[in-house]
């Protein structure tokens, strides 16, 4: 019996152990964190639009923030949350925060303790220059007080229904109480706030369903709400038509956009550091596509010749 023909290198490569690719990806993620590259970041038009919409708010305005995410999406969304909170707090904008995801509350409560009840970038923060107000004084953010500067309403389940409920009866949806049990009537910043349309702006930070899409469907068009949002990279292409149609006034999609937002706010953070990981890991995926196709075509041509 004839000896089996040795495998051509293209055949060997097409079926080689995928764990080598996992290892390459692992290095692509770890090495840039140890050896930063620090490429410059230029904000895209969608991110700029969102930034300028928030920047147009006035001190004392009340904004509704919906944080709909889980720990898996924090690398893409926490940097945006941190940046937009810095931007809102240094303008002394009041915050009403809620969530429609069951996995979010402990995460949001931790972020409130770290970023809202403490200043994010107080005076003297290295590498940070606060913007100037109309009188030429630098605007620093400060520690916000619970139920005076911000309200944490908590979590309510219900997907699209709860969002529809927020649009028509926000107080009833949260049973007229904040998450700590304080009656909403006793909280000054909730005066006159009965529906989402009573807020100057909605800031939506969403990782999937329910999220920005459901807010646009259920309440944006019906009540003509002003909304800006941040989402994961995977959902950006889905939500871009809403931005183009004017239903969203700004959209930050993924880690790269979060890094752009950090640049605009003036305090580079986690997203800017992780942008290097993005560079290298994208390169790995591109090389995998190109190399995989190269092997495929060489193998196909060899088979055609035989």
């Amino acid at each position: 019996m004839a000896a089996p023909e040795p495998k051509h290198w293209t055949e060997k490569l097409q079926s080689f152990d995928r764990r080598w690719i996992f290892l390459a990806m692992g290095f692509a993620i770890v090495l840039p964190l140890l050896f930063p590259i620090n490429l410059p970041i230029k904000p895209s038009p969608m991110v700029q639009a969102g930034f300028y919409t928030v920047e147009a708010l006035q001190p004392g305005d009340v904004v509704f923030v919906s944080v709909d995410l889980e720990p898996a999406s924090t690398p893409e969304l926490e940097p945006y949350f941190r940046s937009v909170m810095l931007q809102l707090k240094r303008k002394n904008v009041k915050l009403v925060i809620a969530t429609t995801w069951y996995a979010a509350p402990p995460l949001v409560e931790r972020w409130i303790r770290e970023m809202i009840e403490n200043p994010i970038a107080p005076e003297g923060t290295p590498g940070y220059t606060a913007p100037l107000d109309a009188d030429g004084k630098p605007m620093y953010d400060r520690a916000y007080k619970k139920n005076e500067d911000y309200v944490w309403l908590g979590f309510r389940e219900g997907k699209a229904a709860v969002i529809s409920g927020l649009g028509s009866d926000l107080r009833g949806t949260f049973d007229n109480r904040a998450a700590d049990g304080t009656p909403l009537d006793a909280i000054p910043i909730m005066n006159g706030k009965k529906q989402l349309k009573d807020f100057k702006l909605l800031v939506l930070i969403s990782a999937g369903f329910p999220g920005i899409k459901e807010y646009v469907q259920q309440v944006q068009s019906r009540y003509n709400l002003r909304m800006v949002g941040a989402t994961t990279a995977v959902s950006t292409t889905d939500l871009a038509p809403y931005y183009q149609a004017g239903q969203l006034l700004g959209l930050s999609g993924g880690l790269a956009a979060a890094a752009e937002y950090e640049t605009m706010v003036g305090k580079p953070g986690l997203a800017t550091q992780a942008a290097d990981v993005l560079n290298v890991s994208h390169l790995v995926v591109i090389l995998a596509i190109v190399f995989g196709n190269f092997i495929f075509f060489v193998g196909r041509r060899r088979k055609a010749r035989r």
Binding site: A160, S164, Q217
Partner: peptide
């Protein structure tokens, strides 16, 4: 809820 929501937000606006 979806009928009116998508009619307005996804059909009308788009």
């Amino acid at each position: 809820l979806q009928i009116n929501a998508v009619a307005q937000a996804e059909l009308g606006a788009q």
